[in-house]
Design a protein around this nucleic acid. Structure first.
Length: 105
DNA sequence: ACCGTATCAACTA
DNA sequence: TAGTTGATACGGT
């Protein structure tokens, strides 16, 4: 079990984030190890469904980069999308490969 | 493969 | 309040 909703909210507490942002971060933090969700899937989980764009913006604003596994969120096409964390896309791919979330090319 | 449109939330003026 | 942008998605050409 990755991170509970209350834990995420607790960490987000103190930052200037909107409800939507919190929702996205909570869902992202709830992704189990070795799993990957698409931006659309996350949007669906937040309840907005079609806000896949806003989901990306929320993850970018994520102040808890290493704490929240934002690297487990990829595009629907199977591409990695982008990553604001350290190392950028390269690091993201490395992490996903390490977890076996994505098959090696 | 490339381009345009759809859709939603946040940001800035 | 209106216009622009962004870690996308989907369909048409």
């Amino acid at each position: 079990m990755p991170l509970s909703r209350s834990e995420i909210l607790k960490m987000l507490d103190g930052y200037d984030l909107t409800d939507f942002q919190k929702e996205v971060l909570v869902v992202t933090g709830g992704i189990e190890k070795g799993k990957v969700l698409t931006y659309k899937q996350v949007a669906e989980k937040t309840g907005h469904g079609k806000a896949y764009r806003a989901v990306g913006s929320a993850l970018k604003k994520n102040p808890l980069a290493p704490t929240i596994p934002c690297h487990r969120v990829i595009k629907s096409d199977g591409d990695l999308g982008n990553y604001s964390g350290t190392g950028g896309r390269r690091k993201k791919r490395e992490l996903l490969l390490s977890e076996g979330a994505i098959p090696p090319s």
